[in-house]
């Protein structure tokens, strides 16, 4: 419970910081702090129930601080959580390089999915000629920030005793031929 509250507050604080900073810095140069907290939840937090609930909550908070339809970021955060959870079982998503690469790919997929949802639900196309350049800058900002945010989430989870890095691995005893 303590971990859930702390991680929710961390995500909410990140989003508010991002929203406030966007008053002075162009939004494309700022990383998606909420999204990276969600990825951090998938990579570092043991309980998937907690992770899914927090991902949806942070998604809704993002929707509140954005001009999108309510529920759009929530859906995308759930998808990002699922993808990161599945990938983290096969790849090491805690290394800075692998995370930066994942951040670049996820930023692109996130932008495409967001534009697709707006086009489908609101019948509007919000991409413009400068969108690709914006996406490149934004993906780079995400790639730089993602390792820091995820190590922060990992630190908070470890501090409150919900880190996935120490999960017990069940090893079957090998039966040696006599």
């Amino acid at each position: 419970m303590k971990a859930a509250l702390a991680l929710a507050l961390l995500g909410a604080f990140g989003l508010m910081l991002q929203s406030t900073a966007a008053l002075w810095i162009p939004a494309r140069c700022l990383p998606d702090l909420g999204l990276w907290v969600v990825v951090g939840l998938a990579v570092c937090v043991r309980s998937p129930m907690l992770g899914v609930c927090l991902a949806a909550l942070l998604g809704y908070l993002t929707d509140l601080l954005s001009g999108t339809l309510l529920g759009q970021h929530a859906l995308l955060c759930l998808a990002a959580y699922g993808v990161a959870r599945v990938l983290s079982s096969s790849f090491n998503l805690r290394g800075a390089l692998s995370l930066a690469l994942f951040a670049l790919l996820l930023s692109g997929a996130h932008a495409v999915a967001l534009h697709g949802l707006v086009a489908f639900f609101a019948r509007q196309w919000v991409a413009s000629s400068g969108s690709l350049e914006d996406l490149a800058v934004h993906a780079l900002a995400n790639a730089v920030a993602a390792p820091f945010v995820i190590s922060l989430v990992s630190g908070v989870a470890a501090w409150l005793g919900d880190d996935d890095s120490g999960r017990p691995v069940r090893l079957e005893p090998r039966t040696l031929p006599l």
């Binding site: 939004a27 993002t62 001009g67 967001l114 969108s131």
Partner: peptide, 10 residues
């Protein structure tokens, strides 16, 4: 606050 998404301006 400003929009957290670079694709929208609110």
């Amino acid at each position: 606050g400003s929009d957290v998404s670079p694709w929208f301006r609110s």
